[in-house]
């Protein structure tokens, strides 16, 4: 999730709790969520901490096939949700594909150069440390 800690995490905590009961939350000193871990299942991490740039920038940097699209969020109201549905779904799909492709590209590139698995890191700094300890 891009910007999990800064925005999205708060919305899924309750749902995760209702579905899973216990799950692990890793937070930083400012109580921003770093990751949400469901034991033996999956870990939701903040890709923004690892790749510190907007998704639009990252999708250009990694030159992924589906680029992040634009959507005017200011026009969204409760009353026009039905009207914007198709446009929003298309925008959301592009965001999802773009982000997953960015992470795949980053994972493959970093593994190819440094033999380090991005999925084992939580931030750019921890990734840098892992690269240092593995290669230097």
């Amino acid at each position: 999730m891009h910007n999990l800690g800064g925005f999205d995490a708060i919305f899924i905590l309750k749902t995760l709790a209702s579905l899973h009961g216990k799950f692990n939350i890793l937070m930083d000193g400012t109580k921003d969520t770093i990751s949400l871990s469901i034991k033996n299942h999956c870990v939701i991490k903040d890709s923004y901490r690892i790749l510190n740039g907007s998704l639009a920038t990252l999708s250009k940097i990694f030159n992924v096939p589906v680029q992040k699209s634009q959507f005017d969020h200011s026009k969204v109201t409760l009353n026009n949700l039905a009207d914007i549905r198709s446009e929003l779904i298309e925008y959301l799909n592009k965001d999802l594909i773009s982000l997953v492709d960015v992470m795949i590209a980053a994972t493959l590139n970093i593994f190819k150069i440094y033999q380090v698995d991005v999925s084992e890191t939580y931030s750019a700094s921890s990734l840098a440390m892992k690269i240092f300890r593995t290669n230097f």
Partner: peptide, 16 residues
């Protein structure tokens, strides 16, 4: 650290 043998193959994205 020893180099990773393979990166975790499972990657996903989630958005709200």
């Amino acid at each position: 650290l020893q180099p990773s043998q393979n990166p975790n193959p499972l990657i996903g994205s989630l958005d709200i």
